[in-house]
């Protein structure tokens, strides 16, 4: 297995994959616990619009994705206030807008190309040094933010009103978490693909929760599950020449099923 690391593109793919495996669960844990699993889908569709814009007008698609996910993140939070009784509506609106813009721009750009497919389904060969550089900066922002804010974000996820009474700036942090989710989508889209980013946010965390640990341990376990899925997913996708997004997500679903199976066996005993 080590010989695949002699290729530079594989080294880049692994570095990128490890960033995904760390950032997705760190943000995903809060998303899942706040029952906002839908938000990953929404923001990834916004990023698709940004990528399509980049391709249509010939600028670096990462910038497009970054701008569109950030606008999407702010818009979701604003709309959530407007439709306070139907929180999910704000997600649906932004998702629709994102996919609509993307489809129109892809049409204007005269259809799909391999580059776009790479962003949609993930790619190991396409990760450039520039991509790695930007993903690295975004990952550092995400990881530092979670290290500094995790106690507050935990409190909000567990008991939003209690946190507010304790003096936590709940509105600001909800907005910031949505923005961090947007950054995580941008970090992840290259390797796992836009359609599967949301799964990476949710599935490793879902599996870790089933192990029945406290918050900090659950978070650590979800990172480990994500790392296993990403590393083996990349190896498999190299040997079988398939898009990495699908293999990575299938492996993390496999881990979830395994955990549920072990749990069921234990219960029967």
């Amino acid at each position: 297995m080590m010989e695949i690391l002699q290729y530079e593109f594989m080294q880049r793919a692994f570095i990128a994959g490890i960033m995904v495996a760390i950032t997705c669960p760190l943000i995903g844990i809060f998303i899942v616990l706040k029952r906002l699993s839908m938000i990953g889908d929404t923001l990834s569709h916004a990023s698709l619009a940004g990528i399509a814009a980049g391709m249509l007008w010939g600028f670096y698609p990462f910038w497009g994705a970054l701008i569109f996910t950030l606008i999407g993140a702010v818009a979701i939070e604003k709309l959530r206030k407007t439709f306070s009784k139907y929180a999910e509506i704000s997600n649906s609106i932004i998702l629709s807008a994102g996919i609509g813009i993307a489809v129109v721009m892809i049409g204007l750009a005269k259809g799909f190309n391999t580059d776009l497919m790479g962003y949609m389904f993930g790619s190991i060969a396409a990760v450039s040094s520039k991509d790695i550089y930007i993903m690295g900066i975004l990952s550092v922002i995400i990881i530092l933010s979670v290290i500094v804010l995790h106690k507050k974000l935990f409190y909000i996820a567990f008991d939003e009103e209690g946190a507010q009474v304790s003096g936590v700036s709940v509105n600001f942090l909800n907005m910031y978490l949505t923005i961090l989710t947007g950054l995580t989508v941008v970090v992840s889209m290259r390797i796992v693909g836009i359609f599967m980013v949301s799964s990476m946010l949710v599935v490793p965390v879902a599996a870790a929760i089933q192990t029945g640990q406290g918050f900090i341990k659950t978070t650590a376990i979800s990172v480990i599950f994500a790392l296993i899925s990403v590393i083996f997913g990349l190896v498999l996708s190299y040997y079988f020449d398939i898009a990495p997004g699908g293999t990575i997500v299938l492996l993390s679903v496999g881990i979830l099923v395994g955990v549920l199976f072990i749990k069921a066996l234990r219960k029967r005993k």
Partner: peptide
């Protein structure tokens, strides 16, 4: 997924 200790100590960190 939170232990009793994590819940009770939450206000101390905020």
């Amino acid at each position: 997924p939170a232990t009793v200790e994590e819940v009770v100590s939450a206000p101390l960190h905020t």
